[in-house]
Structures are given as C-alpha cells and as structure tokens.
Simulated assay, not measured.
Amino acid sequence: MRKLILSTAALALMSGAALAQETVRLGTEGAYPPYNYLDDNGEVAGYERELGDAICAQAELTCEWVTNDWDSIIPNLVSGNYDVIIAGMSITDERDEVIDFTEAYFPADPSAFISTSDAFDGTGVVAAQTGTIQAAHVTGMDGATLVEFATPDETIAALRSGEADAVLADKAFLEPIVAESGGELVFAGEDVILGDGIGIGVRESDGELKDKLNAAIAALKADGTVNTLIEKWFEGMEGPY
C-alpha cells in the first residue's frame, strides 16, 4: 500500500533486540484512517489497532502503542524508540534494505487519484504525503509535478485550495473523503497498484520477534480473524485470506 522511506545516515544505526524488553512497543502514525487514527480520547484506533492487539495476544506479548510522525517513523524504529512499525506501511525493496518485514497482513491496496474534476489526465501538480510510495510514483509520471506534505490531511487541503490539481493516496483512505465531499472531490483516472502488501516493520536485528509476529499473523489468518477485521474496517472489501 502506501509509503517509501527517506534515506538518512541515522538508518545505519541498529539497536538491540526487542525481545530483551519486557514490553513490545508498537509504533504507528495515528493519522491514516481506517488503518490507524486517534479517537476522541486520544487513543490509537482503527484496523491496525485491533489487529495489533490480536497479534500481541496470539504471540503472548505485552504490548503498548506509540505514535510517531510518518517522516521519521523508520529512523525512530532503527534508533530504538519503539520495536515495530504497524502503520499502513507497504513492503518495498527500498525499505527492506533498512528494516525487515513480517508477512503481509493486508494485500497491496489500490492507490487512486482524486481531483476536483474527473477530467484530470495525470498531468499538472499532484500532491502526496512525504516519503510514500505514492510520492515516488508521481516522480516517475510524465507531465506531473510532485508537491509533498507531511500529513495526508495536508494533501487534501492543498487540492481544495487549488495548490494541487490532484492527490494520489491509498484508495481506502480517499473513499470516505470523496463520499463526504458532496461532489466537490471525485476519483479521476485509473487506480494504481503499488508495493507488495502491508507488513509489520521490525529491526533487522530482531529476528526472534519477527518470527513470533509471523507465527501470530499466520494463525490469525487461518482462524479468520484477519479477514473479519478487514471486512469490518474496509467497507465492501472481502477478506483475501
């Protein structure tokens, strides 16, 4: 689904194994519904909150949730501020050079363009969130100029203000925005499939933790939990597992 890393020298610093800690800290963005967001009480909610809690229970891990801005989410995993990333992060070759991933817990999700008119033809100024696979895709589009923003909500604001001609983001994120816009915003052009599905990011040094998480994900796929949560949080989507 979404998001590409920003390379920095800090990514070379690997920290100790998460399993040496009493609590496994789950890092998320908290700003990308329905995958993850903060509810009225300031608590992490969404598909990944419920799935993450189920994975921790299945793996018999004590877990706590930590929020982090998207543009530093990988560096702060590597530096030890939390132990895993569960934040709608697509599995990509570029990211896999820096961190490891579990098996996917969500299939590759279509990305889509929205604009103020369905006449958008793929040229002009296209907004995307900084460090995402969508931003990387726009840079390779003929006739398109990328403008990046720190948060997904800022990309929508740029479209509404006329600063951008279109937004490229995960379709699941855009669907409720289009539906609630009263016709102001519409889907335009063809969907784009990017990445290899969404997985949990772990430090390369944390192989034991990765194995525990993989076993838990496999068990929750087998017993139907993953499909049930996907169908709950993504309207009209049939669980693929």
Score class of each variant (00 low, 15 high):
Asp170Met: 10
Ala169His: 14
Val126Pro: 00
Asp121Asn: 14
Val24Phe: 02
Gly162Met: 10
Ser111Ile: 00
Thr132Ile: 12
Tyr82His: 08
Gly143Ser: 11
Ala172Gln: 12
Ser90Trp: 00
Glu60Ser: 15
Phe234Pro: 04
Leu77Asp: 03
Asn68Ile: 09
Gly182Leu: 05
Asp165Asn: 10
Cys63Met: 06
Phe101Thr: 01
Ile217Pro: 09
Phe173Cys: 02
Gly201Met: 07
Leu51Trp: 02
Asp165Val: 07
Glu29His: 15
Trp65Val: 10
Asn41His: 04
Gly224Thr: 05
Asp118Val: 07
Val78Lys: 12
Thr28Gly: 12
Ala108Tyr: 01
Leu11Trp: 00
Phe149Gly: 01
Gly183Ile: 08
Gly122His: 11
Gly207Ala: 11
Gly27Val: 03
Pro176Gln: 05
Thr92Cys: 05
Glu204Ile: 04
Val202Gln: 01
Gln21Met: 06
Ala59Gln: 11
Gly239Asp: 01
Leu26Thr: 06
Leu168Trp: 01
Val186Arg: 07
Val78Gln: 15
Thr225Gly: 10
Ala87Pro: 05
Met89Asn: 11
Gly189Pro: 00
Gly16Phe: 00
Glu175Met: 11
Thr155Asn: 10
Ala135Lys: 08
Ala104Lys: 11
Ile55Trp: 09
Ser117Asp: 13
Ser7Glu: 14
Glu190Cys: 01
Ala18Pro: 10
Asp196Glu: 14
Val24Ile: 15
Gly197Phe: 03
Glu94Ser: 12
Ala218Phe: 02
His137Ile: 00
Ala12Phe: 10
Ile177Pro: 04
Gly239Leu: 04
Ala172Pro: 05
Trp70His: 15
Ile86Val: 13
Phe113Asp: 01
Pro152Glu: 02
Asp83Tyr: 00
Ala57Gln: 15
Asn81Gln: 14
Phe101Asn: 10
Tyr35His: 13
Glu43Arg: 13
Ser115Thr: 04
Leu51His: 05
Gly143Leu: 08
Ile99Ser: 05
Asp170Phe: 03
Pro107Trp: 04
Asn214Ala: 10
Glu231Val: 03
Val186Pro: 09
Ala112Trp: 06
Ala172Lys: 03
Ile91Lys: 11
Gly195Ala: 15
Asp93Trp: 04
Ser79His: 12
Gly162Ala: 07
Thr132Gly: 01
Lys212Ala: 14
Leu229Phe: 07
Thr102Lys: 00
Val84Glu: 02
Ala166Met: 00
Gly182Ala: 05
Tyr32Met: 14
Asp142Arg: 09
Gly42Trp: 09
Val98Lys: 11
Ala17Pro: 10
Glu190Ser: 14
Tyr35Ile: 03
Thr116Met: 14
Ile99His: 07
Gln21Arg: 15
Val98Ala: 06
Thr23Gln: 13
Ala150Arg: 03
Ala164Met: 09
